[in-house]
Amino acid sequence: MSGPILFCGDPHGHFRHIIKSATELHASAVILLGDLEPLRPLDVELSAINTKLWFIHGNHDSDSDQNWNHVWGSKLADRNIDGRVVELPNGLRLGGLGGVFRGAVWNPNLETPPNFRNRKEHFKSTPRQDRWHDSVHRKHWSTIYPNELDHLADMRCDILITHEAPGYHNNGFEILDDLARNMGARVTVHGHHHDRLDSSERWAQQGFKSFGVGLRGITAIDAEGNSTVIIPGELDVQRGFRQKYIDVIKDVDVEP
């Protein structure tokens, strides 16, 4: 029997708890939900579990040259599933959308057209001195463009991971609900907001189950939406989210 699939909330440079949990629980896959910010190349930080790892980038992964180099420039860059679907060891299809919506490009919650439909259009309007690796400004490597959603909408997945939250969240985007339904996702999982709100009352209306994973938290979730909190997010208790978690890793140290 294969081990659990672990979904990891924004690590922000801390990875030891992820490695420990993945190892002790014999995880079949480890999914990072963005804002990785590794202090070393990602393949070095997570060398013990490289073969189990998939991730999407978050907004902070393009904050600095170092962050960009340690994520997009790492030997694990091909494990970034932004804009594509991969098959996990247990046969589940995992789709990914990294990054965030930025008003300079597009805010789908506003009734205004996007300024750019894709990165190529934006690149043409980017001053030469602001271009990064012959593309848009480094910051916009973590910006969502409309064509990325169009591209994903033609694919099918069982679980969709995003950095941004779908519409159930006060700071979420209903267009991600549309994306999940178009892709046939039964479950969506996101990071970014460092919280774990209960959206279960909306699941029937949405047509899928939705989960947030808190700051440096880890949750095991299967394709049917059965979830187990492995490590609570660091802000879960003060925000009122309490749930028993697996004893085997309860004393894990999340310091790097």
Rank of each mutant, 00 (worst) to 15 (best):
F15V: 03
F15H: 02
R16L: 09
E24K: 14
V30A: 01
I31G: 05
L32F: 07
L33Y: 05
D35Y: 09
D35P: 13
D35L: 03
P38I: 01
L42W: 04
L42V: 02
S47R: 10
S47C: 14
S47H: 04
N50M: 08
K52Y: 08
I56T: 00
H57Q: 15
N59M: 05
H60E: 08
S64T: 08
W68M: 12
N69E: 10
W72M: 06
S74G: 06
K75L: 14
L76E: 04
D82R: 10
G91S: 12
L92M: 15
L92A: 08
G96L: 07
G96N: 06
L97N: 04
N107I: 01
N107D: 07
P114N: 01
R117W: 02
R119H: 04
K120Y: 05
K120R: 15
K120F: 14
E121V: 01
H133T: 05
D134T: 08
S142I: 09
T143M: 10
T143P: 01
I144L: 08
Y145G: 14
L149D: 15
H151E: 15
H151F: 00
H151V: 13
D154C: 06
M155L: 07
R156E: 14
D158L: 09
L160M: 02
I161E: 06
T162C: 15
E164K: 02
P166F: 05
H169Y: 01
N171G: 11
G172P: 00
F173I: 01
F173L: 03
E174V: 11
I175E: 05
L179C: 03
A180L: 02
M183S: 07
S200N: 13
W203V: 06
Q205V: 12
Q205H: 08
Q206P: 10
Q206V: 10
K209D: 05
L215Q: 02
T219L: 07
T228C: 11
V229Q: 13
Q238P: 00
D247P: 12
D253R: 08
V254L: 04
V254S: 04
E255M: 15
E255I: 12
P256T: 04
